[in-house]
Design a protein around this nucleic acid. Structure first.
Length: 449
RNA sequence: CGGAGUAUAGCGCAGCCUGGUAGCGCACCUGCUUCGGGAGCAGGGGGUCGAGUGUUCGAAUCACUCUACUCCGACCA
């Protein structure tokens, strides 16, 4: 993509409403624009990141055996009356009336609707286990939206719903999601630590929140230090096999939010040198809630013995529109964002240090063509701007690798590659630069981790 | 929902106290000079001062009402 043909409204100064670093950087990097309280447009750069995050989530959901579909944002109130949540949900639910004066709502979650789909079609235990998910916009009329897309009212959520014959099956489904979530966050360059959590209004018995550690996190978290760099299951993990050893390995170490524990319990459970008290951003939440919805909504199957049984359900959410700022909170410096390659809006940025100079333009154009041919997703800064402004933009928007070419380098037949994360610079013969870049990027690609 | 604030050009702000018809920096446009870490000079465009009502000869400025947004607390992916 040529920058001169892209839409990238970067800001030199940060709007005053942005209090936390991710919000500030997302505004400055031209990723989002606020449209109302808790409501954001995703501008092209931000949308690229969001799409990459969603792609990783989908890949790991699919790998774990979940099946993607898409349900509407606007739902009929009737389903929610069946489950009893139409009255229970309160003011957080945006209620809408259509022209026929029917009660509708903008979905804050989809348990009712997916249960309705399930009960319509699934009649036999032979069709279980089943896990259906979608990635769809939600609306929760938060009392106080804040921190940009970290806590917005309209937000994107991947929500998965598992259906099993009994509790043992549901626990296996829960463990599959648990492992899928470990992998999902890891692939985005995040350390997502599962913590015992409160079940909240969705209800249920077993619940883990996945938290990214960051000073700006909204929750206090207590955890065993060893969880921070615990190895993540690889892409060869067999989701049809027994995942309970992994589950137990992770959950045997203490980790809980401040809603679930306190200093005394923490100190009793974890030796002093292993205690880590921090702030966490909740990026995912998984629940097992048994027959909470299948019972009122009559979602049952015929079991092997011919008897009708209510299915045991769980639900599993990740908020991509929150994950993006969480990644920034975890990975930035004074100059701007530092994207992991797997979610970066572009993998490389080619900087023409003297746009308008015929020889440099030509050399950059051919280098750009070479980068594209090599499959490197490149943003080519071909603007007629001072070099300093180009560097500032490249650093701000956090492209992992910058490749610099100007008259000086051209004279020596050399290009410079700069690593955004480390600041390291290498001079390379022009002919070898693309190969070098490819070697750097490829192992970090999202499908390789 | 309770508490505290803010609202003047795309962004950041001054002007308000003490009423006299709007200004600065950045951004934007034109030209020239520049270009290896957010360029310089010259010229230029853009605002019914959040909305309404009132006070006044006259309101960005004073009064009242409303709206939007932000921050702090209780809730949530």
């Amino acid at each position: 993509m040529r920058l001169s043909r892209f839409f990238l409204p970067v800001l030199k100064e940060s709007p005053k409403e942005a209090e936390i670093v991710s919000h500030r950087l997302m505004l400055r990097a031209g990723m989002i624009k606020q449209q109302a309280a808790g409501s954001y447009s995703w501008l092209p750069l931000g949308f690229r990141v969001l799409q990459k995050v969603v792609k990783i989530i989908e890949q790991e959901q699919d790998r774990s055996g979940a099946i993607e579909l898409l349900m509407p944002t606007v739902q009929s109130a009737d389903l929610w009356r069946e489950s009893g949540r139409y009255d229970a949900y309160g003011k957080e639910m945006l209620r809408i009336e259509d022209r026929h004066e029917r009660d509708m709502l903008y979905g804050p979650t989809n348990e009712e609707m997916v249960t309705d789909i399930f009960r319509t079609y699934v009649k036999s235990y032979k069709d279980l286990p089943l896990n259906l998910y979608h990635v769809q916009w939600k609306f929760r009329d938060e009392v106080r939206p804040r921190f940009g897309t970290m806590r917005s009212r309209e937000f994107l959520m991947k929500d998965a719903y598992s259906f099993d014959l009994d509790e043992a099956g549901a626990v296996r489904a829960f463990q599959r999601m648990f492992v899928a979530y470990l992998r999902t966050f890891h692939r985005m360059g995040l350390v997502g630590i599962p913590m015992r959590a409160d079940t909240g209004p969705i209800g249920g018995d077993m619940s883990y929140e996945f938290h990214v550690l960051a000073d700006t996190g909204e929750s206090g978290v207590f955890l065993h230090k060893d969880l921070v760099d615990k190895p993540i299951p690889g892409s060869d993990i067999d989701f049809r096999g027994d995942l309970s050893p992994i589950f137990e390995d992770w959950t045997s170490l203490f980790a809980a939010t401040d809603e679930m524990t306190d200093d005394a319990a923490f100190e009793a459970a974890v030796p002093a040198d292993k205690r880590l008290k921090a702030r966490g951003i909740e990026v995912g939440h998984i629940f097992y809630f048994g027959t909470k919805y299948s019972e009122p909504m009559k979602a049952s199957v015929t079991g092997p013995d011919g008897r009708e049984v209510l299915v045991h359900m769980g639900s599993y959410g990740i908020g991509p529109t929150r994950v993006v700022p969480a990644i920034i909170e975890a990975s930035h410096d004074d100059a701007g964002i530092i994207w992991p390659v797997s979610v970066a809006p572009f993998e490389a940025m080619l900087i023409n240090l003297k746009a308008g100079d015929a020889a440099t333009d030509e050399a950059c154009a051919s280098l750009y063509a070479e980068l594209e041919a090599a499959g490197i997703d490149t943003l080519y800064d071909d603007r007629d701007a001072p070099a300093g402004a180009k560097f500032a933009t490249a650093d701000l928007i956090g492209i992992p690798y910058q490749i610099l070419l100007g008259p000086r380098g051209l004279k020596d037949g050399q290009a410079e590659i700069k690593h955004r994360k480390t600041g390291e610079r290498e001079m390379l013969p022009l002919s070898g630069a693309v190969a070098r870049l490819k070697a750097l990027i490829e192992p970090q690609r999202r499908d390789k981790v």
